[in-house]
Design a protein around this nucleic acid. Structure first.
Lengths: 328, 328
DNA sequence: CGGAAAAAGAAATACGTCAATCATTTTCTT
DNA sequence: AAGAAAATGATTGACGTATTTCTTTTTCCG
């Protein structure tokens, strides 16, 4: 009943433990036919290396680095916190996470690193650098062009379509004008969300207005929105694609009952409070803690030489009515 | 830098390894003052037992049992599959899961068991029985009254409120009549969902009709719905709380464009296809695979003598537009 | 066939914990 | 103070794998 050990494999293959070990760990210096016999035995017995015993023996720990954009970019700081919390929770599994600054030259000896995919910056350089050093990498939040890598994050186009669907739902069969607000059109994720929303709104009686860029800044958000609403009193919905929602919320507070329907991203204490106070209608959340958990799962699998599980995170939709309790 | 071992603890406490071990594993026969010194050292050094080394040494495996209602009750069979899949994925962590029939007398030697909370059946008996044998238990899907246990599942009241919110959203400021369909009013989760939905609809211009009981049966579902729709042509929305949705979907197919707004539970191949074909509007999903994962997390923590993490699962909301890819 | 190289085997130590045994020391009883 | 009991210490061999060193056997080549 017990799982077979490498000793069992060796016995079944009719070779010594040493040889089985040499094959398993690809140490070389083994005749082709021995390799085959061992692999055959591994197959037959369904042998799987006991990864915990192996880790114990080689005193291995999982040293992961995550490069997050610096600054208090709401979602990224939440993700950073979630990653550290997850690492703490997995201390028993020998997982450690270090948050790094993407600007800085890195010379760490990592088992795997995670990067936030963004086209700007010298990211391609960093990746090439890592590849040179034989360090595997995954991307977070937003995938990146280039050699295929494992990706953990939400599908931004799906998020945008979800927003579009919610806006449509809120309008019933009626008409309306939807104002998209985003950080910048040069940000890939923002563009993807916008395109996703546009795709859904196209087929309806709703008009998607040209997007306003507010560079994720609350004050600009507030001013730009106030201006836009003054200029066009037919706006029935706002889709806030990026950050800076404190400004949006503050503005909604001044409008009272007559405010447009509002969809925004990321569940934060602010957006949560705004939902509860009926200042906004829907929050689409990327679930940083789930993303952190899946990212570590993927990195561990890669470090163990396994195939990382596919992990596309379905964004959560929160209304006032289904806010999670204290836990999340 | 390395984590302290029990040897380090013993040295720091000025006792032998044996004594430290006796304290750690509560083997008894240790003087009070030695106990204190060891515990002090554990504190000071921040010692944490290497659970993997421990498991290796005692050849431990996690033997879990899950009692699921028999029959092809859509969600439960999905949950069962998810549990087995999760167990397979955690084989490296020595996790094994056995699905059991709640009717049968059980004499297994489990490290932890999970039960579906339902008031009926001799469940209280089973739980008492387990307690006698010193086997810890958690509840799934629907919590149960009685001594506090760890619970993993969605909050059905929240799910119901979510459905209510979606129905309201779909009606804008307009009026409408909402028909709830459920398996039986005697099922706690169904009642909870209904109450949740009622709570949200109350404050609106929508009327919540008396619920129809269809006993989770597709044919009854279809007939009952057809009858109801014929009798009341003012029905603008249907909230299907339980199972048997194949019947609902088949009926919608015959109605064409004029069909009411439909919210139902559980993402299955059927409901998924119906979403894609615009036969229904929203699916609220309990995420069986996530529930399985969290359940195993909780069971493992309990078996390791740790505090199980709180895990209330926020139901996912699916439209046609945000259906997950192949993976989920 | 002889010698070198390649392949295979044997053995030991370690990782951190568990569990058991036996010897020794300390503490308690009366 | 003697003897019993309690507490402590010392030691050992697992668990399944990694890793190294050393020896022995096999294979290959000229």
């Amino acid at each position: 009943m017990r799982n077979p050990t490498l000793h069992d494999v060796a016995r079944a293959a009719g070779v010594s433990y040493s040889t089985a070990d040499r094959v398993l760990n690809e140490r070389g210096g083994v005749a082709a036919k021995s390799i085959q016999r061992v692999q055959r035995a591994i197959q037959d017995l369904g042998y799987r290396r006991d990864i915990h015993a192996a880790n114990l023996s080689r005193r291995r720990s999982y040293r992961f680095a995550v490069f997050l954009p610096r600054g208090d970019h709401g979602f990224f700081s939440a993700l950073g916190r979630a990653l550290l919390a997850q690492a703490e929770a997995r201390a028993a599994d020998r997982v450690s996470v270090t948050l790094c600054d993407p600007g800085q030259r890195d010379a760490g000896d990592w088992d795997c690193v995670a990067l936030v995919g963004a086209e700007s910056e010298g990211l391609a350089q960093v990746i090439a650098d890592l590849a040179d050093r034989g360090i595997p990498a995954i991307t977070l939040v937003s995938d990146i062009a280039g050699p295929r890598r494992s990706y953990v994050g939400i599908d931004n186009a799906v998020a945008g379509r979800t927003a579009g669907r919610l806006v449509r739902l809120a309008h019933g069969r009626g008409a309306g004008r939807v104002l998209p607000v985003l950080g910048s059109l040069s940000l890939r994720d923002h563009r993807e969300r916008l395109d996703g929303a546009a795709e859904i709104l196209e087929a309806s009686r709703l008009t998607l207005l040209p997007p306003v860029e507010v560079h994720d800044h609350p004050d600009r958000m507030r001013d730009a929105l106030a201006t836009a609403l003054r200029a066009d009193d037919g706006i029935t919905a706002i889709y806030s694609i990026g950050a800076g929602n404190r400004g949006l919320i503050a503005l909604m507070e001044t409008l009272g009952e007559a405010r447009p329907f509002v969809v925004l991203h990321e569940l934060t204490p602010h957006s949560r409070a705004a939902l509860e106070r009926d200042l906004i209608d829907v929050v689409i959340d990327q679930k940083p803690s789930e993303e952190a958990a899946r990212a570590l799962d993927a990195m561990r699998a890669i470090a163990d030489g396994e195939e990382p599980p596919v992990a596309v995170i379905t964004p959560a939709i929160f209304f006032k009515e289904n806010l999670p309790g204290v836990s999340a």
